[in-house]
Design a protein around this nucleic acid. Structure first.
Lengths: 324, 324
DNA sequence: ATGAAAGCGCTAACAG
DNA sequence: CTGTTAGCGCTTTCAT
């Protein structure tokens, strides 16, 4: 045998037609026990493995799902992608991964790639090109943490509630001079704006002054340290900080410890990774597992045309995890 | 137009043959400028996107690479996968991701899936089924951190050297009562054994007593805390620990701080994530980026039959990063 | 219960 | 420079 055996080889070996082999493979139609056995024997003998690509071409369904996220290297996305892939593989879907690195150009290239490879659907957590670009694909798509759209389901956690929860927790501890650190706002991903609004609303309701800083370069540690330093210098009297992501919060916590200042910090995300590395950090926990489950459920419903098509915006509750 | 336009539709629209369209698409053969323009116009008009699946079937090459790792949710693998995917996408390869969760059964299922989907090659960092199982695939494969094999290239960092480096660093600080914490040894992934040997060799060379603990459940935080507690209780006099992974080291560091004991800790991995979250942790840094680059280079060479086929075991140098 | 034939969308000889 | 033809490996009518 030169190359890999194909269905035709199995058929010849078993002395039946390709059709029959296909039927055995897919459990379709009626097959006599004897034939089935003979075919299965041949499959085993030849160590035959069906070519899913050929099958995909014929049935016009690949069972591929594209996952478009900034990077698997960030714990929030890494863990979310893990959950999503896990649930999808359970349902016999396969995952093509795309790390956009927050670059619009890469995101566009990936979108084309996924379409060219006939994915059955996509879950998009990146946010550098307009969601309209995706709509043109006329494909089942679920977005995570994106601007609400008429045609695309969006799953996110309760960012506004999380912002409130974090701020209230600091207030409950008797703190009053609380600042907020956030990323630069992004039109396509309003989640950080929601967190900010939660913080500012609570501060206003309590008649307290508030101040929000917007950090750029969300993935660069050195830059964060620089900027945090100057923020600490500018705010010698603060006693609390709500920082809208755990990685930055962890850095701030470590700086506070070194400066021996008395500042309480609440972060956001609550991934296993950061909780493990920085158990003393209080944080707002996003329900990663539930978000993944919901996103997959919605996507598969769209793919199978069972989508009721009414509700398009899903907000999942967050919880506060107190640092130890 | 009912479904997606296909190459034939473009041909008809442009008034040429399918072959010509294909040639324009793939820049093959000689095409008159006029024809090319007409075809490109048709492509744009119809918003045509080539079907890569059909193409793959014909050329018997998918440009798919399977990535088999325990989980994208762990920073080491999440960051490594990010690097690998990044380099591969640059070369127009696409990545199918598999989270084996340390389960042999899942790993086997994924292997079958990848073969069925005609991947051009695989990079394997999971280690629950024998590497021989992969050899049967007769496919270009590169392994990361696995038992050396005659037929499969293995990329790893200098685990033995890292173990030595970590231990020597503790000794250089005047510490002498140093224990080592490791995972349970695994036949297929000898890297932790190497780290252990590095530690034990150095201790022996200095005539010092040594003790290695083997932790199970490498990804479960609560279990780790339990076991670490009892280790701390059993060792009231230690002044140093070499812990063979950063996540566990971070937990230990946090416990040490709470107990106010004076114990220096050196971890292993040195991911961006953990370095960001726990900058005060001293650790042995694995060259993630270089490992990814080398693994991809080797894989693509095998795929393109440029593999010289001599050296099969690649060990990359580690560095020590001092905590701040 | 089984087989023959057509074709999923594309590309690569081979002609012209 | 362009078109005709055959076929990648599989599944599915439509016969028998």
């Amino acid at each position: 045998m030169a190359g890999k055996p194909k269905l035709e080889d199995v058929a010849r070996f078993a002395g039946v037609s390709p059709t029959t082999v296909s039927r055995v493979l897919n459990n379709r139609g009626a097959i006599s026990d004897k034939t089935r056995r003979r075919v299965n024997d041949a499959i085993a003998q030849l160590n035959y493995h069906p070519n899913e690509i050929a099958r995909s071409l014929f049935v016009s369904k690949t069972h591929f799902i594209g996952l478009v996220f900034p990077t698997t290297g960030h714990p929030f996305y890494g863990e979310l992608i893990f959950q999503i892939e896990n649930i999808l593989s359970e349902k016999n879907y396969k995952v093509l991964i795309c790390n956009t690195m927050d670059q619009a150009e890469k995101e566009k290239k990936y979108l084309d790639m996924l379409l060219a490879n006939q994915v059955d659907g996509m879950i998009v957590g990146a946010h550098n090109i307009g969601i309209e670009t995706y709509q043109r694909a006329h494909l089942p798509i679920v977005a995570i943490d994106r601007k609400v759209s008429d045609t695309i389901a969006v799953v996110s956690s309760d960012n506004y509630g999380g912002g409130r929860l974090a701020t209230e927790d600091l207030l409950n501890q008797g703190l009053t001079k609380i600042i907020h650190i956030n990323s630069v706002p992004c039109e396509e991903a309003p989640s950080s704006l929601q967190r900010r609004k939660g913080y500012e609303d609570v501060m206003k309701e309590h008649g307290l002054p508030f101040k929000t800083y917007e950090l750029d370069y969300p993935f660069d540690r050195e830059a964060k340290i620089q900027i945090l330093s100057s923020i600490f210098a500018q705010n010698p009297a603060i006693d609390g900080m709500f920082i809208s992501d755990d990685m930055t919060a962890a850095i701030a916590l470590s700086m506070v410890r070194k400066m021996k200042r008395d500042i309480r910090i609440v972060g956001f995300d609550g991934t296993e990774t950061v909780t493990t590395c920085v158990p003393e950090l209080t944080t707002i926990v996003q329900p990663l597992r539930a978000m993944a489950q919901l996103a997959v459920d919605l996507l598969l419903k769209e793919i199978n045309n069972e989508f009721d098509g009414i509700k398009k915006n899903y907000i999942l509750p967050v919880t506060l995890r107190r640092g130890t």
